[in-house]
Amino acid sequence: MIDIAVKKVLRDFTLDVNIYMPEGGTLVLLGENGAGKSTILNLVAGLMAPDTGHIRIGDETFVDTATRTCIPAESRGTGYVFQDYALFPHMTVAENIAYGLRIRHLPRDAIDARVRELAGPLDLLSVCDEKVGSLSGGQRQRVALLRVLAVQPKCLLLDEPFSALDVRTQVQVRQELKEILAAAKVPAIIVTHDLRDAVALGDRICLMEQGKIILCGDADTLLQKGQHPFIDQFFIGTCKKVKNNFS
């Protein structure tokens, strides 16, 4: 379940959204930069607090201003992949992936095994002992994903997961992510400004502008409607092709 109903006064506008996905799945927040999408991820992750409202993910209430409940960020179990990945620059690839396990004081052997198990399929074993500064964009993206998957998050939050990648890598990583999301079987919220990502990954896509949701539905509904300038103007031509490629 994804149940977000929050209000928060921001510098330029008031964020006011209502999203209810009882079935869970992948929610895509689509819109231009500064529409308030990332703020929603921060609210879900517990890095910000809403002025009023509640957020429920799965069967857990993260925050509810009515009952004054608020679970601290570290106890929410969200897997947040930040826009620039926020890989810890002072750690190696393996240390980054193991971070969540290490602070949970798991035995060293178990941590090592889990890191190998995760890094193997994504071709990261050879760079495990390197500092993250030397990685390519695609590798960084994978490390960031594995770092959150390692702690088996209760939901995934991805902020512009492909924006730092070149176009060819984007296509490959998009497919990879689709498989990972399917395997993880947890609710996910993806923020993007790229309609292709939205169409390829979203069970539900919400178009945001100035802190409000102005259009919501699955990929087909959104593309058929085709009424909104954001969709019409920039992407409508290419997106149908993408949609055909991926679904």
Binding site: N42, A45, G46, L47, P72, A73, E74, S75, R76, G77, T78, G79, Y80, F82, D84, A86, F88, P89, H90, Y99, G100, I103, R104, R147, V148, V151, L157
Partner: peptide, 24 residues
């Protein structure tokens, strides 16, 4: 963002401080 990342990965503010902030 590094501190935020650590928090969402389950680190308490104090753990975050010593494992992320201080080393950086």
């Amino acid at each position: 963002v590094y501190e935020h990342a650590a928090r969402t990965l389950g680190a308490s503010p104090l753990t975050t401080f010593f494992s992320i902030t201080v080393p950086l």
